[in-house]
Design a protein around this nucleic acid. Structure first.
Lengths: 106, 106
DNA sequence: TTCTTACGTAAGAATCAACTTACGTATTGT
DNA sequence: ACAATACGTAAGTTGATTCTTACGTAAGAA
């Protein structure tokens, strides 16, 4: 969950997710929406989103088409909701679930 | 909003918010829940949360009592929800679709 | 094959984030 | 007044983030 929230902690990345929310877009089209930074910077933002599984990449010829993974966003929404619904006793379970999914090895 | 999301991008800060979600706690009590880091580190996390207005501070004698600002969390929730519901985004997509149909190349 | 398009990645600079230790400042008790 | 308590803040280190330029690769067109 920390990875997800960190990924959303950048305005450009949030905007990218909105751009590909309901359709696929190639990287160049996404980059064109950000005239103030280079295509490389956007490519790296896409890498962050991809590793957080917040977007899906599909290759079609030389293009890479990106689309939002709404399911991961739904998990973020559930996490934020859990501030209201999680009792103090459930706190440990939430923390453990977050730790498990962040891939810690023991 | 970026400040809010960045503040939530740290597990300890999320846990602090949970701790003071429905009651006030003094800084020392909060710090006691994090035996792996110093009290200073927690004090700095509280500063981040305070500047993001995610917690409220009330002074009582030598103590500083913290409590969650649920209203700011509600703004985060609304922001996440807006990925699904933002009509502005829907309009933007319609406009972009029209632009693509008329043959703009990038 | 060679050029162009569409992309990722490497390397490096500048900035930011999360911590530590050390210190400063109110407040309260003696 | 003096010491103890409860806290924030300064300074410094380390590692992560965000960008740039430069380069590499795969796919398709000429």
């Amino acid at each position: 969950m920390e990875t997800l929230l960190k990924s959303l902690g950048d305005e450009k990345r949030c905007e990218i997710i909105r751009l590909v929310w309901s359709r696929e877009l190639p990287a160049a089209t996404i980059a064109a929406h950000f005239p103030d930074v280079t295509r490389s910077a956007i490519s790296q933002h896409l890498g962050v989103l991809r590793r957080a599984d917040l977007v899906h990449e599909r290759r079609e010829g030389p293009r890479r088409l990106y689309s939002a993974n709404q399911g991961e966003l739904a998990r973020v929404r559930a996490f934020v909701d859990s501030f209201w619904t999680s009792s103090l006793e459930k706190l440990k379970l939430v923390a453990e679930a977050a730790a498990n999914e962040s891939g810690e090895v023991q």
